[in-house]
Amino acid sequence: MDVYGATKRAVVGKGLPVVAVVDGVFDAGSTLASMRRSLEAGLESTPLAEFDADLLVDHRATRPRITYADGGFSDYAPPRLAVDVLKDELGNEALYFSGAEPAFGWERVAAALGGLLDDVGAGPVTVVHAVPLPVPHTRPVAIRRHGEKSGERVGPFELPASFAHLLETRLVQGGREVVGMTIPVPHYIAESEYPPAAVAGLEAVAAQAGLAVPTEELREAGREVDARIAAQIEDNPDAQRLVAGLELRYDVESPALGAASALVAEGQHMPDGDELAAAAERYLRTVTLDPSELREAGPSAGELAGPVETEPEQGPEQREHPGDPGPASPNPDGVDGPRA
């Protein structure tokens, strides 16, 4: 890991919040990718540290992009795993750990990042995930927090680990304050871009890290996506039943956030994972979808519905309120280091 000294000296002692947006097992709805694009395009960025992606990232699994024009190749874009300092228009700053999931050296990378955060005296860490879950696109995206000491007993549940999961674990074990944020994406459209999930994630990051992040373009794209989904399910009874079942589940769970009691009233039927998966598969077999809008999930539809049973692992469901002020305050006397 290369650390840029000037930038490091400029952030030491500020207690800057940390946001981690790293690829993992899922990037449902291309949520993390959309969040990274918005953060990097909308905020000033100064490199603080960069890992050797040439050694750590599986280039075959995460294919870099390259341009072919006029008979030759150019503009090769290698994968990047790095820590940057983000600054918004109000002068608020945060550390931003982002990029491709390392294929090797998970423990080493987590330890190196933890050491860097200790060296600069960083503040609380927010780790963002996006997973396909049985939630309806017709309801607000409700961020699910974990890592907080709520006292609620859930699990244990086993699931495929990502580097971001390990990072959370090691940072907590190292004594850092860490909050995980899982962004649920409707499982029946998880393979397509779903901007509303990215907007919810950015709002959560803005509240947690105190950053003003532009989201209007994503909001407009989200309205267009929601309109296309509504048009495609309007005349499809299977799709309507699927969404109605998910709406029922959502509406019953929402008033009981974090409650240990039953989520349904006596005698009330709630569709289980098998029913949701079967409805999703019937829907995907019968509806004709435009690949640029809602790509077919094919044989993975059942798998995407699977998290119904593992959902409690994500912890109590929390709604984010965009109007809430973030905890961070501007640092008018802060000076960014030079770009490397």
Rank of each mutant, 00 (worst) to 15 (best):
Val225Gln: 13
Gly201Lys: 03
Asp84Gly: 02
Leu32Ile: 03
Tyr76Met: 02
Pro17His: 09
Phe73Asp: 03
Thr138Asp: 03
Ala239His: 02
Met270His: 02
Thr286Val: 14
Gln232Cys: 12
Val3Leu: 10
Val199Gln: 12
Ala94Cys: 10
Leu86Asn: 06
Val205Arg: 07
Asn92Val: 05
Tyr188Met: 01
Phe157Leu: 12
Ala100His: 09
Arg80Ser: 01
His146Ala: 08
Thr310Ile: 15
Pro237Leu: 13
Glu320His: 12
Arg36Cys: 02
Gly105Arg: 05
Pro237Val: 11
Arg319Asp: 13
Pro78Asp: 06
Ala301Leu: 11
Leu202Thr: 02
Ala53Arg: 04
Leu167Gly: 01
Glu281Thr: 09
Val85His: 06
Leu276Arg: 01
Gly180Pro: 03
Asp336Arg: 15
Arg63Gln: 15
Ser162Cys: 04
Ser38Met: 08
Leu304Arg: 11
Glu303Lys: 04
Met270Gln: 08
Pro316Ser: 04
Pro299Ser: 13
Val179Arg: 14
Gly245Tyr: 10
Thr126Ser: 14
Thr286Ala: 15
Pro312Cys: 05
Tyr4Pro: 05
Asn236Lys: 03
Gly222Ile: 02
Ala259Gly: 07
Ala207Tyr: 08
Phe104Ile: 10
Ala297Trp: 02
Val154Ile: 14
Phe73Ile: 02
Arg65Met: 13
Leu166Ala: 04
Val308Ser: 11
Gly151Pro: 02
Pro312Arg: 07
Ile66Val: 14
Val178Gly: 01
Gly201Thr: 06
Val179Gly: 05
Lys8Met: 15
Gln314Lys: 10
Ser162His: 11
Ala82Gly: 00
Leu43Thr: 01
Pro338His: 09
Ala305Asp: 01
Ala41Pro: 05
Gly222Thr: 04
Gly155Thr: 01
Gln318Leu: 06
Ala297Pro: 10
Pro299Gly: 09
Leu304Met: 12
Leu16Glu: 08
Pro79His: 08
Pro332His: 10
Pro184Asp: 12
Val243Thr: 08
Val22Ser: 09
Pro255Phe: 11
Asp274Lys: 14
Arg339Tyr: 10
Val179Phe: 00
Gln232Ala: 14
Gly24Phe: 04
Thr288Gln: 13
Arg176Gly: 05
Gly222Ala: 08
Thr288Lys: 12
Val120Ile: 14
Arg219Thr: 14
Glu93Ile: 09
Lys14His: 15
Ser34Asp: 15
Gly245Ile: 05
Val57Gln: 00
Val172Asp: 01
His269Arg: 13
Thr31Gln: 09
Pro237Cys: 12
Leu116Asp: 04
Pro338Leu: 12
Arg285Pro: 05
Ser150Gln: 06
Glu224Arg: 12
Phe104Arg: 15
Leu32Arg: 09
Leu166Phe: 07
Ala61Thr: 09
Phe51Lys: 00
Thr62Cys: 07
Thr67Glu: 08
Asp272Asn: 14
Gly42Leu: 01
Leu86Asp: 04
Pro64Gly: 02
Gly210Ala: 00
Ala77Pro: 06
Glu234Phe: 00
Pro160Val: 04
Val185Asn: 08
